[in-house]
């Protein structure tokens, strides 16, 4: 059995390289945006509106990926948009993970009334459509980076809580946990020393997945014009604009869409790849 599975497993895996490579590229692009972006992402030039990308007839070589209806450079806006997307991914992803995983760990290991309360809350959360909930929260909190992050944490902590709770519950029934307590560890000590390391691979995989989800939620919020200020460069905002002018200027939709697609795909493939990589059974 072991042999058969290890033969199937690829060493480190192409998908880890590809997805990790794209994310690294994106991080470099975002950090260096002020240096490498060919134009100011906010600069409008109505005479240079809807210029196609360079390889299409009638293009201006100054605008590699063309311009939108207000004459803003698509490439520069994608690069600056990556800053917001990656900030949200990193901060919202990490916070969601910390809060959700902690609650899940406590619920799954301590059980009893704490578990009752947390599980009931998770049930209630599951009854909300997440996108509507996020939009509602932004309407309440007002637009802006902090609001987006809070909204993502509030709607998505249950994803971690659910999975980590189930895993902690299984781990809690294992013999090694009982023996750790016989040896004289405290309950909290056992939780961190014995349970946490065993659920960590799952948490890491979920965290990467969550970063992809955070990027999507941010894009959706910008798409319905509820992210940060309206003319700031966001992928979702660019997609919203591109959607309305798709018949006249496909590139305004296509390039941010490809960027968003690859980013989300990479985060999730990275998560899957890391999970396999850390999984002691598969290794």
């Amino acid at each position: 059995m072991r042999d058969a599975r290890s033969r199937v497993r690829r060493p480190i895996g192409l998908r880890l390289w590809l997805s990790g490579g794209w994310i690294t590229l994106l991080i470099i692009g975002a950090v260096l945006a002020p240096l490498i972006a060919p134009h100011d992402p906010l600069y409008q030039d109505l005479f240079a509106g809807r210029m196609p990308p360079v390889w299409v007839d009638g293009a201006d070589p100054n605008f590699l990926l063309g311009t939108d209806s207000l004459g803003r450079d698509v490439l520069s806006r994608i690069l600056y948009g990556a800053r917001l997307a990656l900030t949200v991914a990193l901060v919202a992803g990490t916070l969601t993970c910390l809060i959700g995983a902690t609650l899940g760990l406590i619920a799954g290991y301590y059980r009893g009334w704490v578990d009752m309360v947390i599980s009931r809350l998770v049930d209630i959360w599951m009854a909300f459509p997440p996108v509507l909930f996020a939009i509602l929260l932004i309407a309440v909190l007002g637009t802006g980076l902090t609001s987006i992050i809070i909204a993502i944490v509030v709607i998505d902590w249950t994803r971690f809580a659910r999975v980590v709770r189930a895993e902690a519950m299984t781990q809690g029934t294992m013999d090694y946990v009982a023996s750790a307590q016989v040896v004289g560890r405290t309950k909290a000590g056992t939780m961190f020393a014995e349970i946490l390391p065993n659920v960590l691979p799952t948490i890491v995989a979920l965290l990467t997945l969550e970063m992809g989800i955070a990027v999507i939620v941010e894009a959706i919020l910008s798409f319905v014009n509820l992210s940060i200020s309206t003319d700031a460069p966001t992928w979702g905002g660019m997609i919203a604009e591109g959607r309305t002018s798709v018949h006249q200027a496909w590139w305004v939709l296509v390039f941010p869409l490809i960027t968003l697609f690859l980013t989300v795909l990479s985060f999730s493939q990275l998560g899957e790849g890391l999970k396999d990589y850390f999984d002691p059974v598969l290794r």
Partner: peptide, 22 residues
């Protein structure tokens, strides 16, 4: 199926618009 699952409905919607709308 791995690809289809990694990308949410919102993005599939946009891709479909490009394919069957444009």
């Amino acid at each position: 199926s791995g690809m289809a699952l990694s990308v949410p409905d919102f993005l599939w919607g946009l891709i479909l618009i490009l394919l069957f709308g444009v």
